[in-house]
Nucleic acid binder design. Structure first.
Lengths: 159, 159
DNA sequence: GTACTTTTACTCGGATACCGTCTGTCCGAGTAATTATGG
DNA sequence: CCATAATTACTCGGACAGACGGTATCCGAGTAAAAGTAC
């Protein structure tokens, strides 16, 4: 069991888009180039983010993607769900019920435990947003590297 | 991303073995039959549990498996690690570093977040043990169903 | 110069292929208890 | 009756096949801006 790399790519993709000025968009290929990811596959991730209302897309020439929410409104958990889906980490296969010939579906001991653990995990990811990451970046990263990245994005943006 | 069904099977397997009297063992096939799992594959899971020192195995005729620890000493997390391995849910693929041309490996924003969330998840699974589940079972399950299961196990146990 | 058409540069969605991992099966080897055999 | 050999019933570990999901590629369709064309 492992969290998909698509989640990581999506988070940093969104982080890139926070550098865009209002109303500007960035083509999908330009994003994937920055992330060093395969362009065609990354388009699929982008559409998942659009379907989750995290990003907005503009079709046609001079089209591309931009944020549909403020960085404060986008939690890491939102990104995770957009990419991996909202299913829980654990789901019972009913072994316990079969073993004891039970019909009461409320009795699932492991599920209760797992759900408690998972909700604890979720609550942390819900608390942390893209804005949190942005602040951490500006604090920990050399300003010159960050400015270089921003200019590379501004070269590729449209509108 | 989903927790393997092997974890669920292992937990309930261990739960079964708590019903065994001291020094008695249960053959692997008898266990898998109770769990409704494929016998040959379940043997692989059993060996993982043995390697993790959760179970002890007795080879030869009249051989089988028994607990190597008390139910209080076996946490759900121990079982999880025994089956899925000790790697963390998230591991950075280095996108962020490549994007900013960083060399400092300490800077990995997402990893910090994910580790915090995961350790919160782990701490709950470490706190809960097989003994916890056993108590919950005896509280929530009809006694007759439980006794039926125990007799089925006693029929198959050896030594 | 305006209206219309073509080109261009994107997003969108489906079909498909690759590959690693989980699941599942099979086989030979090792081990220990039971049974069979020979004197 | 006792010692040894064969059988039995397990665990152990590797090799391998199938299923599934994440990754990756390609293609046609839709869309909107820009460029070209006709009058």
């Amino acid at each position: 069991m492992h969290i998909k790399t698509g989640v990581e790519q999506s988070v940093y993709c969104i982080l890139l888009l926070t550098f865009l000025p209002e109303k500007a968009v960035l083509p999908g290929e330009a994003i994937s180039v920055q992330l060093g990811s395969s362009p065609t596959y990354f388009q699929k991730l982008l559409r998942k983010l659009v379907n989750a209302d995290i990003l907005a897309s503009v079709p046609g020439s001079k089209g591309g993607f931009r944020l549909n929410k403020t960085p404060e409104e986008i939690s890491i958990y939102d990104v995770y769900v957009a990419i991996e889906g909202k299913q829980s980490l654990y789901s019972s296969s009913g072994i316990f019920h079969d073993m004891l010939n039970l019909k009461d579906k409320d009795i699932c001991l492991l599920s209760d435990l797992m759900e408690e653990a998972e909700s604890s995990w979720q609550s942390i990811l819900k608390r942390q947003t893209i804005a949190t990451l942005t602040k951490a970046i500006e604090k920990k990263c050399p300003k010159e590297n960050l400015d270089l990245l921003k200019t590379r994005i501004e070269e590729k943006m449209v509108l």
